[in-house]
Design a protein around this nucleic acid. Structure first.
Lengths: 258, 258
DNA sequence: CTTGACATGTCCATATTATGGACTATTAAT
DNA sequence: ATTAATAGTCCATAATATGGACATGTCAAG
């Protein structure tokens, strides 16, 4: 998130509060304990506690009274709704996703990054009768699971991608028997060729995906195409990839213009 | 947003940063100048500038180099996506919105508050052939314009509602010739009867709306029903209001359980 | 029931950060 | 060209945020 520009001074509290929000984001489903937050942010417990109380007072965090766990608060949701139009990837990319589904006949997914997860925000089915509905719109899974996630990891700085894979390693068991090492290889291969191939997203399913970037080069999201394995041999992937790249170029141009 | 609980100490910087984010939220479409932010937050300009630089460093704000204006940043969007499931009003309320559209035959809207605006996040048309599509999904307008906005204002503390109406007063001209005084009267009337009636949302259109609350009593959003004027005489409004209230009670119960 | 481990939460002397008046630079309006 | 408005910087110091020490609460083990 931080660029290489000169860091501002007198903003330690803001940086610390943002770090706490990132810790909450990582556990936005399960909720975070204060001990988790203190450990992940490197803050002393009284400091973490005070920052949490400050965020709660502003509506940016909430605490479940029963479990004592902390969550992102309603003001974050509200701000997110207002921020959405400036990053309205769903609207801008929706046509491209529909076009790719029509042209390929397969299922096309649009995803964005959410912390260490990928969030599916759009899906279009193609005409081919066997649909690879591997992901529901609105769902989330660790970055690396799914071709879109691999493509997004490949678009991130290597250290950041490695850190995410390390964080996600214990979580992979919920999604099959793929290992972090295998995912690291898929990410490296994706970096090399410019697009991700996931040959074993699920048994019998294969996928190809590519990242979408903001004007400043930052990661905006990804588009991926999934089909039954025998519909995606190497030759067809090599035909689909340029089509995907062309649509993504158009999306990136519109993101630049907005 | 702030409750009446004891305010935490040692969190002035967080409160100030949140105030800056609110100022950015108010102008999330047009962008905010630093002078705007300093004035609205009451901060001295060097302080406002430094806080903005801190938020930019964390990805919570961005600055357009050409216009110099500041906007909510990509990290806010990402956090908003992660916060959404805990406040997934669209999912929880979707069935109620569809049911009300089916039962009344008219158009039903679901909206949330976004700063001083109302954001339409869901719309269902009923079977009656004349549709009151006064608002597009995804659109926003000042709170007070539209029945859902009036209902949300009525659910807020009176001072907060007055402050929002004051802020929105100069903006009303874009939406017809209704005045802030008229809106204040509609809000007061809504507070009295427990639901909002907007007899002149647009020429020939009338609407009825009600707020949805979170478990803690805070405002979650609103549901409103719009139709051509002669389809909503007083007698019919008195039949629709209990139905609306019953559906909203169900939604609030599910919000509590989630 | 008791004990120990772990976690949450509070206090306040003081270390350190954040502040904002004074100033410079840039842009827009006249 | 001049003036007004706005953006942005600097740094002495005001005042905020810190975290070690401690209190309290919860839960699992014995």
């Amino acid at each position: 998130m931080k660029d290489d520009a000169i860091k501002p001074t007198g903003t330690q509290s803001i940086a610390r509060a943002a770090a706490v929000l990132r810790a909450l984001a990582l556990r936005s489903q399960s909720g975070a304990r204060m001990a988790d937050i203190a450990r992940e942010t490197g803050l002393e417990r009284p400091t973490a506690h005070r920052i949490l109380q400050g965020l709660i007072a502003e509506g940016m965090a909430t605490q479940n009274e029963g479990t004592r766990r902390y969550y992102l608060g309603p003001f974050i949701y509200e701000l997110g709704l207002l921020a959405e139009p400036r990053f309205h990837l769903r609207e801008i990319a929706g046509q491209a996703v529909a076009f790719l589904a029509e042209q390929t006949g397969d299922t096309v997914f649009l995803a964005v990054r959410g912390g260490n997860d990928a969030l599916c925000i759009e899906r279009k089915a193609g005409s081919f009768p066997i649909k690879a509905f591997t992901v529901e719109v609105g769902s989330r899974m660790p970055l690396g699971i799914g071709c879109g996630g691999i493509a997004m990891l490949a678009a991130l700085p290597e250290e950041e991608a490695a850190s995410i894979l390390k964080f996600n390693a214990p979580r992979l068991a919920e999604y099959g028997d793929v290992t972090a090492t295998q995912l690291a290889e898929l990410v490296a291969a994706a970096r090399g060729r410019g697009y991700a191939i996931n040959p074993h997203r699920a048994p019998g399913i294969a996928a190809v995906g590519m990242a979408v970037r903001h004007a400043d080069g930052g990661l905006a999201g990804s588009i991926s195409i999934a089909a039954i394995e025998n519909r995606l041999p190497s030759e067809r992937i090599e035909k689909i990839a340029p089509m995907l790249r062309a649509e993504i170029r158009k999306i990136e141009k519109m993101l630049r213009a907005s």
